[in-house]
């Protein structure tokens, strides 16, 4: 790779080859393999057999599959709005001239930075029925008279996962929205103040419209990420109780673990298609946001 003229440099695709090769072998090929596999009966120690849509037919009659879809969608609908709202509040606070700004930012980053498997373990302990922090606080603060069976009941397990996920991913939303907020020119606020608007009016008329593109980005990033949720449910509830918190990723994983690669692949193909449609939407909207600025 000896380049001499500026033109030659500009026309060199060679530099991007390693990147493309890596993504081809370790991302695209596996996705393709999963697609192909979903048309096979592919179970460990059994003859591999092409069965076309059998896996998918089975899938559409599988009540556990619908259960996984229901949980995944409910989880997105509850956790993502919570994260966006909380993230927006945090971002608004951090965008003010607060003392210990650096310390506060570091605090916000910490839950995001640690592995979700570890935070899952931590929340498992917090939600412990007998001596967990959650029940201790609930009783002390008078929210509940007796201990709540967090991880043992469907609703409790769902709320537990939502709380743990909100704790872990609100920082990401905060950071993105904070960047969006800090890029709003301060003159706009001064102008709005001169025009005699109050705090809420300024938020409504200046902040929200200008933050909208960034909000959309955060929203879609979080939606796609929540769609793929695996680590937290695996560690915190193992999908239980009784499969009530099994996400699509976890459901698919169970089949892989059991050696049924055909059926597991079919489930993950469905997830892939949903994620792909969402990401196309994201890229389209992202382009609009780019044009808008």
């Amino acid at each position: 790779m000896e380049y001499h003229t500026f033109s030659e440099l500009r026309e060199s695709y060679a530099f991007i080859l390693p990147l493309m090769i890596f993504i081809l072998i370790f991302v695209l090929l596996p996705v393709l393999g999963t697609f192909i596999n979903s048309f096979f009966r592919d179970i460990s120690f059994m003859q591999r057999k092409f069965i076309l849509f059998e896996n998918y037919k089975q899938l559409f009659n599988d009540s556990d599959f619908y259960g996984a879809i229901r949980f995944t969608i409910l989880f997105i609908l509850v956790s993502v709005p919570l994260e966006i709202i909380l993230g927006l509040i945090f971002a608004l606070i951090l965008n003010e001239a607060v003392p210990f700004r650096g310390f506060l930012r570091a605090c916000v980053l910490l839950p995001w930075a640690i592995p979700s498997a570890i935070s899952g373990r931590l929340w498992e302990l917090i939600f412990n029925y007998n001596y967990g922090l959650a029940n201790f606080l609930c009783i002390k603060l008078g929210i509940s008279t007796g201990p709540i069976n967090w991880l043992g009941s469907s609703l409790g397990a769902f709320l537990g996962i939502v709380i743990a996920d909100v704790w872990k991913t609100t920082p990401f939303v905060t950071i993105i929205l904070l960047a969006g907020l800090s890029s709003i020119p301060i003159e706009l606020y001064s102008q709005a103040k001169v025009d005699g608007s109050n705090f809420l009016q300024r938020f409504h008329k200046v902040t929200m419209p200008l933050l909208k593109p960034v909000l959309i980005v955060a929203l879609l990033f979080r939606t796609i990420d929540a769609l793929r949720i695996f680590d937290l449910v695996y560690v915190l509830t193992h999908g239980g109780p009784g499969g009530a918190t099994t996400s699509l990723s976890l459901y698919s994983y169970r089949y892989f673990l059991a050696g049924d690669f055909g059926y597991g692949s079919a489930i993950s193909v469905v997830l892939f298609v949903i994620a792909f449609i969402l990401s196309v939407v994201y890229i389209k909207l992202g382009r609009f946001a780019e044009l808008g600025t």
Binding site: L9, E11, P30, V31, T34, Y253, F272, S279, V280, I283
Partner: peptide, 28 residues
């Protein structure tokens, strides 16, 4: 540094890749 029109395509392709669910890779 590329002068060719393919660069935005590569960028958005790569962005789409980052949206793939991990579970659809891990079996294969």
């Amino acid at each position: 540094r590329l002068a060719l029109p393919g660069k935005m395509l590569i960028l958005f392709f790569v962005l789409a890749v980052s949206m793939f669910p991990q579970i659809s890779l891990v079996g294969y």
